[in-house]
């Protein structure tokens, strides 16, 4: 099914609202990056007092430093033409100040804090956790959808049931279990509970239910073992759902901060979002710093997502060819 036959007009009518919605959806993300690069407390020669562009409402749509840098560059060139060296160097200094102030929170994060360590911690926790989640949940989801065995529906409903108790009340018992297993202040305290979530199994089960059973039966007749069937038939077919789960699980692990703060005491062991919290002042957190932290946290997930994108398409072709 494609829209080719419906003509250009119909297509345009479709694209415009979709693009509009996409832009609305993307705005907060865009705003995070712009604010992280916004010019704070700056004064040029025409201003009476310093101005901050960071907290302006409505928000500025682009980093104001660009405009300011441009105008200073212009003035510097004019001054050079007139041979006014003093003015030229003044404007050159202003240009430097604009750049420095634009990136001030980035240089603070990368020079004065453990942000690189936190990034590394989070990356490997999220990758390990995601790998385990996707593997175990696909295995479990597959048998829950396609195998008959006693206790099947019990496990299914148990999985659904546990999601209905809010995390807020299970924090304390989870904390106790982590201590009981002597995992406190280690990364396992973050990874293992991350592997225990219910939603992934449920997701994979729902996805597998829709996969035609005939395909699996055919593989059985070929005499393939269970594990081989799983590896060669189930996994390729489930690729789109696995990709989705891989992304959900990664984003979840990446963004969680309260649990790491609770189970990790050593600040060098913290995850990124948790570590960034330890830099926020008590009463008034700096907007620019907050947004810079959010931007630094968002970039790796965005890269991860874009890398994973192709598996959505891959799943589609495999599923199509096989039948």
């Amino acid at each position: 099914m494609s829209y080719a036959q419906r003509g250009r007009l119909g297509r345009m009518l479709l694209y415009i609202p979709l693009v509009g919605l996409a832009l609305i959806a993307l705005f907060p993300l865009y705003w995070v990056f712009v604010t992280s690069l916004q010019l704070p407390s700056y004064q040029n020669e025409e201003m009476e007092s310093p101005v901050s562009y960071v907290e302006s409402v409505p928000p500025k749509l682009y980093p104001y430093g660009i405009t300011e840098y441009w105008s200073q560059w212009d003035k510097k060139r004019d001054a050079e033409k007139l041979g006014d060296e003093q003015a030229a160097s003044f404007h050159a200094e202003k240009m430097q100040e604009v750049v420095a102030k634009t990136f001030t929170t980035y240089s603070y994060l990368f020079k004065s804090t453990d942000v690189l360590k936190w990034l590394w911690n989070t990356t490997y926790i999220a990758i390990l956790g995601t790998f385990g989640t996707v593997l175990f949940d696909t295995m479990a989801g597959y048998v829950l959808a396609k195998k008959q065995f006693p206790g099947r529906m019990l496990v299914f409903w148990l999985i659904i049931a546990t999601m209905m108790i809010p995390d807020q009340v299970t924090l304390v018992p989870s904390f106790m279990i982590v201590r009981l297993l002597d995992l406190f202040d280690t990364h396992w305290a973050v990874i293992l509970p991350g592997l225990a979530g219910a939603f992934g199994v449920f997701l994979m089960r729902q996805f597998m239910i829709a996969v035609p059973s005939e395909l699996l039966e055919a593989a059985k007749i070929d005499g393939a073992g269970e594990w081989r069937t799983f590896r060669t038939i189930v996994i390729p077919m489930a690729a789109p759902a696995m990709a989705a789960l891989g992304i959900f699980s990664f984003v979840g692990l990446w963004n969680s901060f309260l649990w790491p703060i609770i189970v990790i005491n050593d600040s060098k062991m913290l995850t990124l979002t948790a570590g960034l919290k330890t830099l926020q002042d008590a009463n008034l957190s700096s907007f620019k710093l907050l947004m810079t932290g959010a931007a630094v946290a968002a970039v790796p997930i965005m890269i991860y997502f874009l890398l994973f994108q192709r598996y959505f398409v891959k799943g589609l072709t495999v599923g199509g060819v096989k039948e």
Partner: peptide, 25 residues
């Protein structure tokens, strides 16, 4: 039915320990 349980095992262990126990508590 055995393989089905084996496929479920890793998830059920973690799920039981870190999800079912806290919820039961």
């Amino acid at each position: 039915i055995g393989p089905a349980y084996l496929f479920l095992l890793p998830k059920l262990l973690l799920f039981g320990l870190f999800t079912v126990l806290p919820v039961g508590w």
